[in-house]
Amino acid sequence: MFQAPAGVFIEPEFLQTLDPRQLKSGYAEVLKHWLIADAAAFEQHRRLGWLTDDWTPIIRESVALKQRIVAQDPLESGPRKLLNFGHTVGHALESYLLNQPGREALHGEAVAAGLVCESWLSVQRGLLSADEARQNRNLRVFGVR
């Protein structure tokens, strides 16, 4: 059963307490949003990189994008499934690495690897160009090449 949350609270200042690995992990989810729904924002941020002093505009963009998708498809019967991009492979990798001492992956790291793998699968199915998949793969935040 789907139920909308009572509220979502985001405090960008909290991000200042995180180490770079945690920030990159969260940023992978933001990149996922741009990859599925805002090519211009993706291109802009691909050039700028993930390091910033003010995450507020990035968070606003990402949350607004996710809200638009969820509002179109509150029961996940169509476009909302796009939000799962990177998660099918990512969750499998995350689960596998949990049983490998010293090799655990953060959620965003696993999703980033999933984005790369699922981009490759999209190329194989003719849904994404090889050049687009290569751009996704070469993002430094993903940590996979």
Rank of each mutant, 00 (worst) to 15 (best):
H107P: 03
A92K: 02
L127M: 11
E13N: 15
W34G: 01
K24A: 10
G143V: 02
L65W: 04
A64C: 08
N138T: 13
E61H: 08
A130D: 07
D54S: 05
R68V: 08
T56V: 08
A28Y: 02
L31K: 00
F14L: 15
V144S: 06
W34F: 12
F42C: 02
D73W: 05
Y96P: 00
L97Y: 09
S122W: 03
F14M: 13
S77W: 10
P74L: 08
S62E: 05
V8Y: 13
K81C: 12
V30D: 00
F42K: 01
S122N: 12
V144F: 12
R80T: 04
E118T: 01
A28S: 08
L23Y: 05
I10K: 06
G78P: 01
A92P: 00
L51N: 13
G90Y: 02
Q67N: 15
K32C: 03
L115F: 03
A130Y: 10
L15V: 12
A37G: 06
M1G: 11
S62G: 06
E76Y: 07
V111L: 06
N99D: 11
A113N: 03
N136V: 11
E132M: 07
G49R: 09
A105P: 00
V116Q: 01
R80L: 10
E61V: 02
A113E: 04
L115P: 00
L121C: 04
A92V: 04
W120T: 02
L127I: 03
P79C: 14
G102N: 07
Q135I: 05
K81S: 12
G86L: 01
C117T: 06
L115D: 00
V141Y: 05
P79N: 10
Y96H: 13
L31F: 13
G90Q: 04
E104F: 10
T52N: 06
V63Y: 10
S119L: 02
S25F: 04
E13S: 15
A113T: 06
R80C: 05
I59F: 09
